[in-house]
């Protein structure tokens, strides 16, 4: 047995690449394309010559009183202040996506670090970190988010951080579990025998192995954060004065008459939110089944 073959069979990259190429399916790529498309539209929204999302397009002669239904002039219609829903929905994607992305990044940075530390060093450090995770998980996440938004200011940064805090515990637990699983494997023991330092083992040996199965969680977690932001915005507790999918849906559904007579105000933002969450969930789920992470550990 040469050393070559052992390294090859132990290298997760080769196996994973092969698995992805084999049968991840077109659905995965379709879902990813939608996410990329909506991200691009959100980034480019100010440069696309959309209508002003805060402008009022009252047209007394032609259409009477707003809200106006979908037309060539206003693709998604307007709300009852005659503001263009299409422009607002695309602009709304900005906050929703920024919050989703920063929240899960923060969760990975903090939760991932804590989880790996807990799994690698074990002992009392592990006990403290694990207990912190359990305490964080003892609040239903929306309740914790509502409590924190009530106490802090509602800027883009704070909302992202609050939702980031919520993702610490789930990310951290998975990172801890995979670290525990890998830290007794031969390649880690070998590195330790050679005399590698703890930080080197964590960064060079463990991190690459732990991060790959967690990439599926990043997609799923982003979906959760986007939904949570939508929920907060819907309750009027997200970024103050901001246009987001949640607040647009709230405007379209706050009175029964608006919802009955002008359903497009709420339904178009719902459609985009739904498609984005569906895509992230679907892509995450496909990726997870290809990387073969146990469902229970997520």
């Amino acid at each position: 047995m040469s050393e070559e073959t052992i390294i090859v069979s132990d290298s997760p990259d080769a196996e994973i690449n092969a698995a992805i190429q084999k049968k991840i399916g077109w659905g995965f790529w379709l879902a990813i394309s939608w996410v990329i498309l909506i991200t691009l539209l959100a980034i480019l929204a100010p440069y696309l010559h959309l209508k002003d999302p805060r402008g009022y397009f009252i047209d007394i002669d032609g259409n009477g009183r707003p809200p106006y239904g979908p037309s060539f002039e206003h693709w998604f219609g307007t709300d009852k202040d005659a503001r263009d829903i299409f422009a607002r929905t695309l602009h709304g994607a900005r906050i929703s996506l920024i919050v989703g992305f920063s929240a899960i990044s923060f969760g990975f940075l903090v939760g991932g670090t804590l989880g790996i530390i807990a799994g690698y060093f074990r002992g009392w450090l592990d006990k403290i970190i694990s207990f912190t995770f359990i305490v964080l998980l003892s609040f239903p996440s929306l309740v914790l988010a509502i409590m924190l938004t009530a106490l802090l200011n509602r800027s883009l940064f704070t909302i992202s951080m609050i939702l980031g805090i919520l993702s610490i515990a789930p990310v951290g637990r998975l990172a801890r579990a995979s670290t525990l699983q890998f830290s007794d494997r031969e390649f880690v023991l070998a590195a330790r025998q050679i005399g590698a330092s703890d930080s080197r083992i964590i960064l060079r040996e463990l991190l690459p192995n732990v991060v790959i199965p967690m990439s599926a969680l990043a997609l799923l977690g982003m979906a959760v954060a986007i939904v949570a932001e939508g929920g907060l915005a819907f309750l009027g507790l997200s970024v103050s004065q901001g246009i987001t999918w949640g607040s647009l849906i709230q405007i379209g559904s706050d009175s029964a008459t608006t919802l009955e007579n002008a359903p497009w105000i709420a339904f178009f933002p719902i459609l985009l939110l739904f498609l984005t969450v569906l895509s992230l969930n679907f892509a995450g789920d496909r990726l997870r089944s290809h990387l073969d992470v146990k469902e229970s550990s997520l």
Binding site: F234, G246, A256, L259, E260, L273, F274, N281
Partner: peptide, 29 residues
């Protein structure tokens, strides 16, 4: 079930309210 799980609960609530309360009138508002 994938579709159901991707639908945020406030959106699902609005859809059900629109269909069953406002359009069909089966349930009070």
């Amino acid at each position: 079930s994938f579709f159901l799980l991707a639908m945020p609960n406030f959106a699902l609530a609005i859809l059900l309210k629109y269909i069953f309360s406002l359009k069909l009138g089966w349930f009070p508002l």
